[in-house]
Simulated scan of single mutants.
Amino acid sequence: MCLGIPGEIIAARDENGLRVGSVKFAGITRQVCLQYVPEAGVGDFVVVHVGFAISKIDREEAERSYRILEDLGQTSELTDDNRARSRPS
């Protein structure tokens, strides 16, 4: 099963003619291609699948979707990654 994870755009820019941005999920930030959602900007929520924002959604839908994914145990990759970054080397 393929999942799209909701996240908030915290920065957007153009890189070599391609729209990209920083999107925050569960306290971590990833670089995401925003080319498929040209109407989305900083402060908007998007659904991200394999590094591409595929749709814009409102805050309530993002929160509801994230809660469902947590209940299904599908957010561990995000939280495990966050824990690994905070561990001392």
Rank of each mutant, 00 (worst) to 15 (best):
K24G: 00
A11R: 09
H49K: 14
I9A: 02
Q35P: 09
I54N: 08
E77R: 13
T29G: 06
L72M: 14
A26K: 03
I57T: 08
A62W: 03
G7N: 01
V23H: 00
T29W: 03
E60A: 09
L69N: 13
K56I: 09
R19T: 12
S22Q: 07
R64Y: 03
D44L: 02
F45R: 02
A62T: 04
Y66G: 09
E61S: 12
S65I: 07
Q74C: 14
R67F: 10
Q35S: 15
E15T: 15
D14N: 12
T79S: 14
K56D: 06
A11N: 14
G51R: 02
K24E: 00
G41D: 05
Q74L: 14
Y36R: 15
I68S: 14
E39P: 04
A40G: 05
V48I: 03
L34Y: 00
S89N: 09
G7D: 00
V50Q: 14
S89R: 13
D81K: 09
E61R: 06
L18E: 09
G4Q: 06
G17M: 10
P38Y: 07
F52H: 12
P38V: 08
D80I: 06
G4I: 04
R64P: 03
G73M: 10
D44I: 02
S55T: 12
R19K: 14
E77D: 15
R67P: 01
E60S: 09
N16S: 15
C33Q: 10
R13C: 01
S86H: 15
S65P: 03
A12R: 04
G27S: 12
A84S: 12
N16L: 15
V50N: 13
I10H: 05
F52K: 07
R87D: 13
R85P: 03
Y66V: 09
R30K: 15
R19A: 07
L34R: 00
R85C: 11
E61G: 06
V20E: 04
Y66R: 13
C33V: 12
L3S: 08
K56F: 04
R83D: 15
G4C: 05
P38E: 11
M1G: 10
V47S: 09
E70V: 13
G17V: 06
I9S: 01
V32K: 00
H49G: 04
E8N: 01
A11F: 09
P38I: 10
Q31C: 05
A40N: 07
P38N: 09
Q35V: 14
V48P: 01
V46L: 04
K56W: 04
I54E: 10
V47F: 05
G17I: 10
P38D: 08
G7R: 00
C33K: 07
G41K: 08
